[in-house]
Amino acid sequence: MNQVRIIEVKQSVFADNDRRAAQLRRELKEKGIFLLNLMSAPGSGKTTTLTRTVELLKDEIKIGVMEADIDSDVDARAMAAAGVKSIQLYTGGMCHLDADMTRQGLDELIDGDVELAILENVGNLVCPAEFDTGAVKNAAILSVPEGDDKPLKYPLMFQVCDVVLINKIDVTPYFDFDLERCTEYIRMRNPDAKVIPICAKTGEGVEEWAGWLRQQVREWVTFS
């Protein structure tokens, strides 16, 4: 009978992905490519917001979009209609994207030249927060019908986000949603998060968001 060796590891399952994500970020910096990771629950408005954002920025920044949301076929066509290169990422039923899957998508996306790559992550507030994709900035969308206490229920998502878009503010009168309270809950988890209320449907507030994003891209690309 062979001797059994015990190797003490004491390492988070996410540590390996974290390393790969950091490596990807370094390479993106060298190439002057900004990657945005856009996350939300299904139906919060990722695709609608993306389409609006692209309309505002496409003439000044070369944009590419990676779709990983479940109904991504429809979404990819919406992007093509907006005049932006987009590809679909097949997640094989997986509930999140990790750094390697993102890298594969980027390899396909940036053989054209892209300055801003936007990843529409899988519609889910739990797993995408646990897996660093290698993105330069993380954005989450929280829509009014989901309730203002969502930051309390999904703390990690709001902790990893640089910016939170509160979408569907047009329906606020019909829901018990307090914007101030919601912002406070977000700040409890993440004092640095920027909070921008928007209505992706009409475009209200989207300019402020696009302005923030433009600034981030410029800083990243210019000093690379």
Binding site: V9, S12, P155
Partner: peptide, 15 residues
């Protein structure tokens, strides 16, 4: 939360 969301490998046994 202080602890409780860990998913980590403690140790590995090998032949």
């Amino acid at each position: 939360l202080l602890t409780g969301n860990e998913v980590s490998i403690k140790e590995i046994a090998a032949y």
